[in-house]
Amino acid sequence: MSQSRIRVLVGKPGLDGHDRGAKVIARALRDAGMEVIYSGLHQTPEEIVEAAIQEDVDVIGLSILSGAHLTIFPRVKELLREQEAEDILLIGGGTIPEEDVEVLLRQGFAEALFTPGTPTGEIVGWIKQRLEKKGPEPARAND
């Protein structure tokens, strides 16, 4: 019997230390049955991609409130490509202006971006839909 679980790395790249949002998201994903690896604060793109590869995650979620999103998303995407790990979905959230969201999505630097006010259920739903093959294991008797 398969015991597959969706695995997500929640990362805080860059210099801002506001991780409340990242923790709220991590908790919501946990409650949706996912395994969430939390990287901690002040991670470089290199550290995030390396951790994602070692942990073999399905999704990287970046929380960025520092304004560095136009630098960090492309850099993470580039590193994933270098490591032949483009199958890992890259999503993010934080204070990202609408026009930058469009730029990042249009140029393929992120698969989805969720800005403040997004219900956590929407993020859970998006991930589950993209990874339908890996749904949680149905409950078994006597477990």
Partner: peptide, 15 residues
């Protein structure tokens, strides 16, 4: 630990 309710987990040892 994984949650006994949802099976989800926060894996934070890497920090």
């Amino acid at each position: 630990p994984s949650s006994p309710y949802t099976g989800g987990a926060i894996l934070g040892d890497r920090i």
